[in-house]
Simulated scan of single mutants.
Amino acid sequence: MTELTYAWTEEILSPLGETAVIIQCGDQLSDAVQRRVLSVCALLEKSTLPAMIEWVPSYTSVTVFYDPFISPYPELCRILLQQLNQMKESVQNKPRTVTIPVCYGGEWGPDLDYVASEHGLTAEDVIAIHTSGDYLVHMIGFAAGFPYLGGLSERIATPRRATPRLRVEAGTVGIGGKQTGIYPVDTPGGWQCIGRTPLRLFRPAENIPSLLAVGDRVRFEQITMQEYLALKRKEGER
């Protein structure tokens, strides 16, 4: 395990309305910035700051929601900076890797052929590229358990649909610009739908309701329709 330290300054803190402060960890997506985000979250998890209500990580920052009647903004920033400058970044050599089985194309991936045609590829090419990627979970959001995955190949990066669908089924794997992701619940959505996984990403009855967490690594594995249906039955029995 490697430990890194940083010098945090007032410039990395900024207000978000009257009840939140943004801790900026970097200005672009990268593994290094992601590690800083995770380290800040770990610090806040252990913090006894009485004014803090919750914190929400994003691609390059962490937003802390707080009660200004307990700690006004200047006082909160002073305490946060003290804690941040004592923080050590722990970098795990082997982050958790989760394999997601996907049945590509057909009714479960209606945009697969479109993505292929946009890049002068075949559907099989798109599947091969998508399943060869090593993806980092940068953020969970939009819908409960929705993972924003970085690391998509430029060869299949495709803008979102001009008109979102009114309903995208849970488990649908999509491409939105330079990212890929998985819809955890039935919801409207505008990503290019290329396949579907039988795994449930959002499990509200469990202690940890999201299958994936920020910092996880994800790999996709192609499965057949028969394998999809068999795994779907098993998921329904959980």
Rank of each mutant, 00 (worst) to 15 (best):
T48P: 03
T48Y: 06
T48N: 15
T48I: 09
L49W: 09
L49I: 14
L49F: 05
L49C: 11
P50L: 02
P50Q: 05
P50N: 04
P50W: 10
P50E: 05
P50C: 09
A51F: 03
A51R: 00
M52S: 04
M52F: 00
M52W: 01
M52T: 05
M52D: 03
M52N: 08
M52R: 02
M52K: 01
I53K: 15
I53G: 01
I53C: 09
E54D: 10
E54M: 12
E54S: 12
E54W: 05
E54V: 00
W55G: 08
W55Q: 00
V56L: 06
P57H: 11
P57S: 12
P57T: 02
P57Y: 11
P57I: 04
P57M: 05
S58K: 07
S58I: 07
S58A: 15
S58V: 04
S58H: 08
Y59Q: 07
Y59R: 03
Y59E: 06
Y59M: 07
Y59N: 12
Y59I: 01
T60A: 13
T60D: 13
T60Q: 12
T60H: 12
T60S: 12
T60R: 13
T60L: 08
S61A: 14
S61W: 02
S61E: 14
S61H: 11
V62T: 09
V62R: 05
T63F: 05
T63A: 09
T63M: 10
V64S: 11
V64Y: 01
F65P: 01
F65L: 09
F65I: 11
F65E: 09
Y66R: 00
Y66S: 01
Y66L: 00
Y66K: 01
D67E: 10
D67P: 09
D67Y: 06
D67I: 04
D67C: 02
D67R: 15
P68F: 02
P68G: 10
P68I: 03
P68D: 06
F69S: 11
F69W: 06
F69N: 12
I70E: 09
I70L: 12
I70T: 10
I70A: 09
S71P: 00
S71L: 11
S71F: 11
S71D: 12
P72T: 07
P72C: 02
P72A: 00
P72G: 04
P72I: 00
P72S: 04
Y73R: 14
Y73N: 03
Y73G: 04
P74R: 11
P74F: 02
P74S: 12
E75H: 06
E75L: 15
E75Q: 13
E75A: 14
L76G: 08
C77Y: 02
C77V: 00
R78Y: 13
R78H: 14
R78M: 06
R78Q: 15
R78C: 10
R78T: 15
I79S: 13
I79C: 08
I79D: 12
L80A: 03
L80M: 04
L80Q: 00
L81E: 09
L81R: 05
L81Y: 04
L81C: 04
L81A: 04
Q82D: 15
Q82K: 10
Q82G: 08
Q83I: 01
Q83C: 06
L84Q: 07
L84W: 02
L84C: 10
L84G: 06
L84N: 03
L84V: 09
L84E: 03
N85S: 10
N85M: 00
N85C: 13
Q86E: 15
Q86R: 14
Q86S: 12
Q86D: 11
M87A: 04
M87D: 03
M87S: 07
M87L: 14
M87H: 09
M87K: 10
